[in-house]
Amino acid sequence: MKAIVTVIGKDKVGIIAQVSTVLAENMVNILDISQTILQDYFTMIMLVDLSNMSISFSELHRRLEEKGETIGVQIKIQREEVFKAMHQI
């Protein structure tokens, strides 16, 4: 199962490091990553592989949300199929 992690918020030091740490701790593999900064706003999109994930999806969702609150950015994780369904035929 693959998912898309999106991180949106004000740019600061260590966002990628902190998000990647949560993912690594739970055996989530990062397949692709892209980021842009638009007028101080940081947007990062990651494609991750959940096949060896050591916790449940809802638990990972909760931990990422918590992490987002601590560093002051919004972190979302959604299964990749949502985007495929909407944008690819």
Binding site: T6, I45, L47, M86, H87
Partner: peptide, 12 residues
């Protein structure tokens, strides 16, 4: 991979 603009469109 799905493009960045498609992902942000869905989220918006």
């Amino acid at each position: 991979m799905i493009s960045q603009s498609e992902i942000t469109e869905t989220i918006r």
